[in-house]
Simulated assay, not measured.
Amino acid sequence: MVTSSATALSASTARSLTSMAFEQLRADILTGELRPEERLRIQGLSERYKVGATAIREALSRLVTDGLVESEDQRGFCVAPVSVDELVDLTRTRIQVEQLALRQAVAQGDIDWESNLLSSFHRLSRSEAPSSPEKHAAWTTAHRQFHEAVLAGCRSPWLMRLCRLLYDKSERYRNVAERQPGSQVRDVDTEHRRLMDAAMARDAESACKVLEEHFWQTAEITLKAGFGGQATRKKLAR
């Protein structure tokens, strides 16, 4: 006879496996390891991540909800496609949402916000350029922490949740583009310093302008690298 405690333990283990599969799949999609429109076969993924088929199916269903995976009747799952139109729309939306959070952060941020912003910028500026998988992981973590630190003073959990979602979507595009030959190099350290300096100076207008320029430059480089030069002035009209 199966006890209630054994049943609870089994359910907990199943949730853990699903969560593990979800995080690994999500990371591989965001970094570009799993390419846009790539077929996601249950058996292959089960072998790749060393978890059962049930956990893989549940993880894929969660990723469908997040918009990173698509499901088609009779055809199974595939990585969600990317497109010029989506990236331009995503960039515009991200700018609007993050500028709202940034204005609130500049107005409401306290000494803890300032301290965290300074330390996160220092950590990012000391992180080596992502020239290898190990360095890429460390830089990506520092980069995310910096952008979150800029906005954290807004004191709005919902705004921060939206900003994290948009960040993830944007990172996927950037990572896919970086895997293309001839990706452009830019002085992101200076861009990040300008953003930090404007925020620390409590200059909301300047900070929002720097943020907008920073995101559009990323979008333009991503479009040129990832979409065969399809970035046009019309597409990038602001």
Rank of each mutant, 00 (worst) to 15 (best):
T3E: 00
T7L: 10
S10W: 00
A11S: 05
S12R: 13
T13M: 04
L17Q: 13
T18F: 01
S19N: 01
F22V: 00
E23D: 10
Q24F: 09
Q24H: 11
R26C: 14
A27P: 02
D28I: 04
L30R: 14
L34F: 15
R35H: 12
P36E: 03
E37N: 13
E37P: 06
L40A: 07
L40E: 10
L40R: 06
R41G: 03
Q43P: 00
G44L: 02
L45D: 04
E47H: 03
Y49E: 01
K50G: 03
A59C: 02
L60S: 08
S61H: 06
V64R: 05
D66E: 12
D66C: 05
G67S: 09
V69I: 02
E70Y: 05
S71F: 14
D73K: 13
D73E: 12
G76R: 02
C78W: 07
V79T: 11
P81Y: 03
V82W: 01
S83G: 05
R92T: 11
Q99T: 14
A101Y: 03
L102M: 13
R103I: 01
Q104K: 07
A105P: 02
A105V: 01
Q108D: 09
Q108L: 14
G109A: 01
G109R: 01
I111S: 12
W113K: 03
E114A: 06
E114L: 05
N116G: 09
N116S: 10
N116W: 02
L117K: 00
S119H: 09
H122C: 00
H122N: 07
R123T: 09
P130T: 15
P130M: 12
S131H: 14
S132H: 10
P133E: 11
K135P: 05
H136I: 08
A137H: 14
A137F: 08
W139F: 12
T140M: 11
H143W: 06
E148Y: 07
A149N: 06
V150Y: 02
L151G: 00
G153T: 01
G153D: 00
R155Y: 03
W158A: 03
W158T: 05
M160L: 14
C163I: 03
R164E: 11
R164N: 08
L166E: 15
Y167G: 11
E171R: 12
R172N: 07
Y173S: 05
R174G: 11
N175Q: 15
N175K: 06
V176G: 01
V176N: 12
R179D: 07
Q180N: 09
G182I: 02
V185T: 15
D187Q: 07
T190R: 15
R194F: 10
L195S: 12
M200A: 13
R202M: 05
R202S: 14
D203K: 09
E205A: 15
S206H: 15
S206R: 15
A207I: 09
L211C: 10
E213L: 11
F215C: 08
F215R: 15
T218E: 14
A225W: 05
A225K: 08
Q230D: 11
R233Y: 07
R233E: 08
K235Y: 10
L236R: 07
